[in-house]
């Protein structure tokens, strides 16, 4: 499934890039993040507890960053596993200077499996949006405690053959993807 979104963050692009690459910052802002560590060159491992609808699980996530082009763009490739299922996929993230702040765009293509796919399909989009909103809200506040304004828009394009949804895990996976790839 594909999920796209963009967020306007009231901070300069360089600051956003750096924050996105600050493990402590990410850990603070990612809902349910218990640990986040660098395990190799542009490779990360994280543990995140995510709850979407009826599924709550601790995801072990591994991420690698590719096509790094600071402070403009990168590509995040990763896999998230839990007893409740798995998600895997990739996302491209772009930062653009706009209106004195930074517009962050992401375009993720991912797949979920196991119970996440089975039970959560209708909830994944909403949960993804909510998790992403939570992250960006926290992230914006951290960067600019005064402004704390977040404009969020998530749009999804599910494949026509599956007008259904995917799982919650998908949501947390996307969020993880975005944040992790920002880490260094």
């Amino acid at each position: 499934m594909e999920i796209k979104g963009e967020y306007q963050i009231d901070a300069p692009r360089q600051a956003v890039w750096e924050a996105l690459n600050d493990p402590e910052m990410l850990k603070k802002c990612i809902p349910g993040c218990e640990s986040l560590e660098k395990v190799g060159d542009a490779k990360f491992a994280a543990k995140v507890t995510a709850a979407v609808g009826p599924v709550r699980a601790k995801f072990n996530t591994s991420l690698s960053l590719e096509d790094l082009n600071p402070p403009v763009s990168y590509r995040l490739v990763g896999e998230s596993k839990a007893a409740a299922g798995f998600g895997r996929g990739s996302a491209t993230v772009e930062l653009e200077e706009q209106d004195g702040g930074t517009l962050l765009r992401y375009d993720a293509d991912f797949k979920v499996g196991g119970k996440l796919a089975q039970v959560g399909s209708r909830l994944v989009m909403g949960a993804t949006k909510k998790t992403a909103d939570q992250f960006f809200s926290a992230f914006s506040k951290e960067l600019d405690p005064g402004a704390a304004r977040v404009d969020a828009a998530v749009e999804s394009t599910a494949e026509p053959s599956f007008p259904w949804t995917y799982v919650l895990s998908g949501a947390s996976f996307v969020v993880l993807l975005i944040w992790w790839f920002l880490l260094r």
Binding site: K111, G113, G114, A117, V119, S121, R122, F162, W164
Partner: peptide, 16 residues
């Protein structure tokens, strides 16, 4: 009952 092309059951709950 719907499977996706990778074999994941999409209609796997009474919600779907």
């Amino acid at each position: 009952c719907i499977y996706d092309e990778s074999g994941q059951l999409m209609s796997g709950s009474l919600m779907d």
